[in-house]
């Protein structure tokens, strides 16, 4: 494992399209559910333990070599909101481009050929981690961190939240991210032997409902 490669993949400046997505934060801000650093933290914590842990397990399983087609179907079943499925595939496609340019690999080429319009982002992330010489724990960390740093950055732009407060939120979630990342690797290993049904399916109702409401807005700052 190479720590430097992990930093490259986890860097918010890695050009894979994440900057245009708020991870549901824009909808929650508009609904008045995120108003400050405390509510941002609760939002991020909720995401971390629902869609976040699911994505991290998918990414870890993909990094362990589980069939991407099966993982993609499992991700579809765990993403009932069509707006979120579209966003996940779009981000997957963008990540695929960035990863193939950065770490050329036959596996990534094969994935791109199989899903020219994009596979779910965590599936691509897992294979990108493999291509970068990283392991399932790295993939899980990247996925989890992205899942909370995206909303935090978005809320800085949407509410003018103090960026130091937003970064403090991420720091306070570190221990939980550590635990969930370990869990994700253990789950990923079980997927290798027992199949994708052992993936968690935890969901957050307001993320799903909010995503659909957001997708129907005529005017918005973020793509999701």
């Amino acid at each position: 494992m190479t720590r430097a490669a992990l930093l490259v993949l986890a860097d918010g400046r890695f050009p894979a399209g994440g900057h245009a997505h708020s991870g549901g934060a824009e909808a929650a801000v508009r609904a008045g559910r995120i108003t400050d650093a405390a509510s941002l933290e609760a939002f991020c914590r909720g995401r971390l333990h629902t869609s976040g842990v699911v994505a991290a397990c998918v990414a870890a399983a993909a990094a362990l070599g589980v069939d991407p087609g099966e993982l993609n179907r499992a991700a579809d079943a765990r993403t009932p909101s069509p707006a979120l499925r579209v966003a996940a595939r779009r981000l997957g496609r963008q990540l695929m481009r960035a990863a193939r340019a950065t770490w050329p690999s036959a596996e990534l080429d094969a994935l791109a050929a199989l899903f020219p319009k994009g596979a779910h982002q965590p599936v691509v992330l897992g294979l990108a981690a493999r291509a970068a010489g990283l392991g399932p724990l790295d993939a899980a960390y990247c996925s989890l961190y992205e899942g909370v740093s995206g909303p935090a950055t978005a809320v800085v732009r949407l509410l003018g939240l103090d960026p130091f407060d937003a970064t403090g939120v991420l720091a306070r979630l570190s221990d939980e991210m550590d635990r969930v990342a370990q869990e994700a690797v253990e789950t990923g290993e079980r997927v290798v032997t027992d199949g994708v049904d052992v993936l968690p399916a935890r969901s957050a109702p307001l993320l799903e409902i909010g995503a659909e409401a957001h997708a129907a807005w005529a005017v918005r700052l973020f793509a999701s």
């Binding site: 400046r13 050009p15 894979a16 399209g17 994440g18 900057h19 245009a20 997505h21 708020s22 779009r90 496609r93 963008q94 990540l95 481009r97 960035a98 978005a154 732009r157 949407l158 918005r220 700052l221 973020f222 793509a223």
Partner: peptide
């Protein structure tokens, strides 16, 4: 239309993936 997440210059310069798509 490409959506830019409040940072139009990012989408044309630093992270061009959505525009390329």
């Amino acid at each position: 239309a490409v959506e830019t997440g409040a940072c139009p210059h990012t989408a044309i310069r630093d992270d061009i993936s959505a525009n390329l798509e």
